[in-house]
Amino acid sequence: MRVFRKISELRQFISEQRFLNKSIGFVPTMGALHSGHSELLRVARNQSDIVVCSIFVNPTQFNNQEDLINYPRTTDRDIELLKAVECDALFLPEADEIYKEETRLKFNFGWLESTMEGLHRPGHFNGVAVVVSKLFHIVNPDFAYFGQKDLQQLAIIKQLVKDLSFPVSIISVPTVRESSGLAKSSRNERLSIEGKNIAAHINKSLAQLESQLLSGISFDEYKSESINYLKDKGIEVEYLELVDSETMKAVSNKLNDNSVALCIAAVVEGIRLIDNRIF
């Protein structure tokens, strides 16, 4: 696996692969890699000739600076994981390589900025859109792979690609979970063993709520019961919403054939976690 820290060097590598008519699959990450990332890379490996992964803890998408400081950084371990899944190239830049000066670019994703993650993390999606745009320009991939756990972010990136006409296909990959049902996340590393056991109730509550919705009970009728269930387990719910899984617009129940998603953000041991169930 080649490791690149400079944009110019990575671009040279990409140009060489393009000259050989190789397709490029790209997995952007912030490191602290786990089996969820391995699945993204595995899918990329099966679909693309060359797999490129980036590890960059993007400072502009953190509205909480303490969260940025505490974000786990496990570069040596990450490199071993990437080698194990036969990644071809790792882009590992410093912040001043991506942001040579403070960016003045501002994205506005309309109503998506005022719901769920957009509402609770002001400026987050602007930071995501800026760095993903930069990475797409640098890597110029044919395919880019994102996990469904960050469902609203996935919708934002699809909108970004559509509006700016990036020549890249966005591939979504289902969420990978612990045996307990807890969604794999780099933030899980900051939880104690007890905290992980508590956090497993997040997915359990979503499964219970899904079952109720499919039986005909309205979302509003059962939402507060789900929140109270989690509160009793020691979990603080930031939001719990039922949305169209493509548009992220709120819906009131599951009475048609459209795909919907239960989306949640919750705090366990001071660690903010997100999850969803699509059905």
Rank of each mutant, 00 (worst) to 15 (best):
M1F: 12
M1G: 14
V3E: 14
E9S: 15
E9N: 14
Q12I: 08
S15I: 05
Q17D: 06
Q17N: 15
I24C: 07
V27P: 02
M30T: 00
M30V: 00
G31H: 08
S35T: 07
G36T: 03
S38C: 15
S38H: 03
N46F: 08
D49R: 02
S54A: 11
F56A: 08
V57Q: 09
N58T: 02
P59D: 09
F62H: 04
N63W: 04
E66V: 02
Y71S: 04
R73F: 09
D76N: 13
I79Q: 12
L81K: 14
D88G: 05
A89I: 06
L90K: 10
F91L: 03
E94A: 14
A95P: 04
A95C: 09
E97R: 03
L105I: 11
N108P: 02
G110F: 03
L112N: 09
T115F: 09
T115Y: 14
M116Y: 01
E117R: 01
H120V: 05
H124G: 03
F125D: 01
G127L: 00
F136A: 00
H137C: 07
V139W: 06
F143P: 04
Y145H: 01
G147E: 04
Q148M: 12
L151M: 09
Q153I: 01
A155M: 00
I157H: 07
I157D: 09
Q159K: 15
L164K: 09
S165G: 00
S165M: 08
P167A: 05
S169W: 01
I170T: 11
I171H: 08
S172E: 10
T175G: 04
S180R: 00
G181Y: 07
A183K: 04
K184L: 13
S186T: 05
R187F: 05
N188V: 01
R190F: 06
E194G: 02
G195W: 08
N197R: 09
K204H: 12
E210I: 00
S211W: 03
Q212Y: 07
S215Q: 14
I217D: 11
F219K: 06
E221M: 09
Y222P: 00
S224W: 08
S224P: 00
Y229W: 07
D232V: 12
D232W: 05
E238T: 11
L240Q: 04
S245E: 13
K249M: 11
K249R: 15
A250S: 15
N253P: 02
L255H: 14
N256T: 13
S259A: 15
I264K: 02
I264R: 00
A265V: 13
V267P: 01
V268L: 10
R272V: 11
